[in-house]
Design a protein around this nucleic acid. Structure first.
Lengths: 147, 147
DNA sequence: CAAGCACTTTACGTTAACGTAACCTTGGAC
DNA sequence: GTCCAAGGTTACGTTAACGTAAAGTGCTTG
């Protein structure tokens, strides 16, 4: 029984609290434990265990954060895993692997550029649609007070 | 038999060629006809028919372009359809509908903002990973000429 | 007129990313 | 001790977005 849970547990500095339970992480990121377990099964996370129970460190939390960000950008879990695993294997990776990694990174980067352009274009579209909608709306209720 | 297919058919100005066959569109956007038919089935396209055959106009092509752009940004076909359909229904849409449309647009816009931030962050991550990879690579082959 | 494309419909198959249900285990709170 | 909330495993279900195969239609080209 570690005596680490003293009275100082209430002030929530994210310093000392190095470890997280699966439920905590789930709440932090608005996802379900099932999702986190699934990511582990897919090789994106590899938390320690205390008995059966998973113990997550800060690095695991960061990894999860990066994973979710990648997902929001439309990358598949497999793509994300590839980059993450190669990143971890970097120190003792061979030259071929590293060059492969650089290729993948260039690829992702190009993808991001396309998305930036897409966002710009989409933004204009939305502007157009919105202003048109406002026009129609104004003509529909020239004096109506919305009641 | 319309006599429109004269000798001037070879110069490929995208002006006169108002209509497209499904295969043409598919090649233009690097997708399969099946995908285009699926989008129609999902209510994203409604091409004319000449007999059984689908005839696509320029507006259909634009719609398809917007759809694919939306997809690259991670929107579901259902989301895209909602916006597109409301956009088409705008002229005679009632006030409630239009306001709903404005809400959806604001939502998409917020989504785009998040993605922009995600892209910025991801960009930095990629920078980091890349420079680290280059470092390791440099140390691996200090004088090796790559043969 | 037979061949060969390009198009059509119908329908079942597939993959990714989880959801959900059933059942078991465990550490505290009372 | 008992209860229960939070954790675990196993396994089947689900949804979106197409892929793929089978079988028919239609035009135009040798």
């Amino acid at each position: 029984m570690p005596s680490r849970s003293s009275a100082s547990e209430t002030h929530q500095l994210p310093r000392q609290r190095r470890t997280y339970a699966i439920g905590e992480l789930a709440r932090m990121f608005q996802i379900t434990p099932r999702t986190i377990r699934f990511y582990e099964q897919e090789g994106l996370l590899a938390p320690e265990r205390r008995g059966q129970t998973r113990i997550y460190q800060d690095k695991d939390r960061v990894r999860l954060k990066l994973t979710l960000r990648g997902k929001r950008l439309g990358f598949s879990l497999a793509e994300i895993r590839d980059v993450v695993m190669m990143y971890d294997a970097m120190p003792d990776g061979n030259a071929r692997q590293l060059k492969r990694l650089l290729e993948i990174l260039a690829d992702k980067r190009a993808n991001l550029e396309r998305q930036l352009e897409d966002i710009r274009l989409m933004h204009r579209e939305l502007d157009d649609v919105e202003s048109q909608a406002r026009d129609v709306l104004a003509n529909l209720e020239p004096t109506t007070v919305e009641r």
